[in-house]
Design a protein around this nucleic acid. Structure first.
Lengths: 264, 264
DNA sequence: GACTCGAAATCGTCATACTTATTTTCCGCT
DNA sequence: AGCGGAAAATAAGTATGACGATTTCGAGTC
């Protein structure tokens, strides 16, 4: 059972509600009136495309979509415009919106990431994101060590200690909260806006990992210790050490991934 | 032959030259301006917002925009939808599209990056991107060393040698071509789709650097040598060395940046 | 003074007519 | 028969008006 929780924090993020696009048609959900019909249509088309339901090169015609989903062309066009801005499709006159190859997608778009994480592309997306993390977070930690405010240092140790406190006895949910918060602080403290924006991505990865991993296993004690030491290094303004320790965490995350998903 | 038909049926010609307009916001065709009125409107609004012309919290009303830019509300709405998907604005009923704080923008969106690079935010954007590069490229080089095909290795050495050949005598343009191509190959060869997509970003950074730097100076010979050695390391499947050498390149790029732009 | 209810403003959606660009068809020409 | 170009067909793009939904604001009442 997919117990959902741990969605929180400020801002909106990549959380996809329990909206599984199994139904091939009819966005008829009177349950939750999300904002706007076009958003609902998007929530149908986006996952469908990223899941490969519409393969590369296939064409979406406006009238067809309008009829299929029982909305006006206006709504369809707005949704298509958004898909186009995500580079999922390319709209051409007299042809329609053709699905672009995956290499051209805006794979950094939070919405695209969410859709892919929710769909059949999950494993691949998770791997890409983890590799990205392994590249970014060590450098972010280095910068954080140089730039973090006293308050951010305090948050860091607070969450590191929180991880220690919740690392045993099946408290994975509580552990996850601290873990996510910890990495968010690091990324934000780096002072780089592009790093900071990866906070949601990291949250998604960590959440996904927790949900999909064997839930009985407590977190790796070594990883917990590393987090504590990173917090110490940042507080001590030891950039090199913060970077190196975070790199060790990243190595652990990659190794974990190799266990979970079969190598290609 | 462009013959003007004096069509009075609609009486709405968007290119009527007599219309001078004291609110002259007539988006002319421009390089990069894709087909479609909405794209042209977007090309006006996007840069304006990212440049801070519309500060955070300011509101864009649909009718107002429609009148100001002399387009229909249909066009305005599509443009706003796209801005919304980029998280530049948030559209609410009865309020309009309010500009979000920069921390919430989709700073990885290629279009947003382009706009910011072209506007007043240029220096900051360049710095963010360079830091990102410094994090990603070393890891990408490591992966490339493990995964690159023979053909990619060949391309790599080819471009590295090309850099050597054009590194002296004011051939900066030719040098740039090889430089960009080199980094593109590395990113692509890493096998990570998210890294690969940063190729355009790196190209933008390198191009911007060349354009804004003193054009008389030939590239740093040390950097050129490093590229050659990276190519060698990748060919030799020496992942650790490829990573380390690329990290040295990144350090150089960061140092260069500190010279150009005053630190904050 | 606080509370409620109604009116105004503005976005969201729909329907429709028309425009424009591109593809396809097909006719006439070589 | 093959080829080239004009005409037709098609679907996206744009414009416009109408209506619905919702949020905000203000006026009137307790």
């Amino acid at each position: 059972m997919t117990t959902k929780d741990a969605e929180e924090t400020t801002g909106h993020a990549l959380d996809s509600p329990s909206d599984l696009g199994r139904e091939p048609q009819l966005p008829q959900e009177r349950g939750g009136a999300r904002q706007g019909l076009h958003a609902r249509l998007l929530a149908q088309l986006g996952p469908a495309i990223t899941a490969g339901e519409y393969p590369t090169g296939s064409v979406l015609r406006a009238d067809e979509l309008a009829e299929r989903y029982e909305v006006s062309r206006t709504v369809v066009r707005e949704a298509v415009r958004v898909l186009e801005s995500m580079r999922l499709v390319e709209s051409r006159r007299r042809v329609g919106a053709t699905v672009r190859p995956i290499e051209e997608w805006n794979v950094y778009d939070p919405q695209v990431i969410t859709w892919r994480l929710a769909g059949s592309d999950r494993a691949r997306q998770l791997r890409s994101l983890t590799v990205l993390r392994s590249a970014v977070e060590p450098v972010a930690a280095r910068l954080a060590a140089e730039l973090a405010t006293a308050e951010q240092c305090a948050e860091l140790t607070e969450h590191a200690l929180g991880m220690v406190a919740t690392s045993r006895g099946q408290q994975l949910d509580a552990y996850l909260v601290h873990d996510v918060a910890f990495h968010r602080v690091i990324l934000r403290a780096s002072g780089n806006e592009m790093f900071a924006q990866l906070g949601d991505v990291v949250a998604a990865v960590l959440t996904g990992r927790t949900q999909h991993q064997v839930m009985f296993v407590d977190p790796d004690p070594a990883a917990v210790t590393l987090h504590v030491r990173v917090a110490e290094a940042v507080r001590a303004r030891d950039a090199a050490r913060a970077e190196e320790l975070t790199r060790e965490i990243a190595v652990g995350a990659l190794a974990e991934l190799d266990i979970l998903t079969p190598e290609e």
